[in-house]
Design a protein around this nucleic acid. Structure first.
Lengths: 149, 149
DNA sequence: TTCAAATACTTGTATAATGCAAATAATGAA
DNA sequence: TTCATTATTTGCATTATACAAGTATTTGAA
């Protein structure tokens, strides 16, 4: 009998492998970390560097450098916050938006292929379950900010 | 409306954060990569270095060095395969087994806490869904070996 | 049998990622 | 004003990563 952890460990590893092989877009080779950043910058409304770093659970200094390289790749841009000039808000460039969208489509295509091995009912059940998990994780103390200790 | 990819992206990120904060066991600070390796060595029967590297989707040279450091930490051991002396099979040491088990328990405890926000029925549905996903991913061409291109 | 090709793994080397400590810059409260 | 706090960046050391090349062993065809 598989343990709960085993089920999740294997699924998340496989999803990570999909992410790893996804994607080369318009000559840009996007690493999983960069892909995560583009994803979150796209999702959040004018997030600060700190906000994204916290969301992703990375050290802010590491993240600061990741931002720099994404700016060099012309995928995101930094805008000083007029209300607090210590803060930089991040947003996607046109090219960054294109890359983020393409990755999203490619990932959804991969997932669709996986769902093709299920009935429509099973697919709906799975999607509802993932949503349930996300809601429960959001309520949890362990999930998902850095845990002290 | 959240896309399929968004649901999975968020869930796997959160699971990754749990993994990241899990665990310090008996003075050993275990990285997520090391935790994955211990998990797979424990799961597979006398796997070779190549087998695990392939399972985890890492380059074998990187993996070879990860194995070396886990041996230095006295968590796994390498045994030459008598049938083919090019091959080394991996197994957990007593300490490695202890660390792997402790991580497993800790992760299961985290997950239990998350499930405490659901009804028993919802929990069962979620677990069945993850199992369905794993089975479907196993059938998929995209999942989950390195994809050419 | 012999030897070249294939396989399993390791090492050399270069690059990139990571995170702590410290620096810089801006804010806000006393 | 002054000093603690906050947001971000830079210095630095460590670690992870992967390509290329090396070693050791096995395999299979001539």
């Amino acid at each position: 009998m598989e343990s709960t952890r085993e089920l999740f460990q294997i699924m998340t590893r496989r999803f990570g492998l999909l992410n790893k092989n996804c994607c080369t877009v318009g000559g840009n080779d996007i690493t999983p970390v960069q892909s995560h950043i583009l994803f979150e910058v796209d999702r959040q409304h004018n997030p600060s560097i700190q906000q994204i770093a916290e969301t992703l659970g990375t050290d802010i200094t590491t993240f600061s450098r990741q931002v720099q390289s994404l700016i060099k790749m012309n995928l995101i841009k930094k805008t000083p916050d007029p209300a607090d000039r210590r803060v930089s808000t991040l947003s996607l460039t046109v090219e960054g938006k294109y890359v983020a969208t393409t990755i999203d489509q490619q990932m959804n295509a991969y997932l669709d292929e996986i769902f093709s091995f299920m009935t429509e009912f099973e697919k709906e059940t799975v999607l509802r379950s993932i949503k349930l998990m996300n809601e429960a994780m959001a309520k949890s103390d362990n999930c998902c900010r850095p845990i002290i200790g």
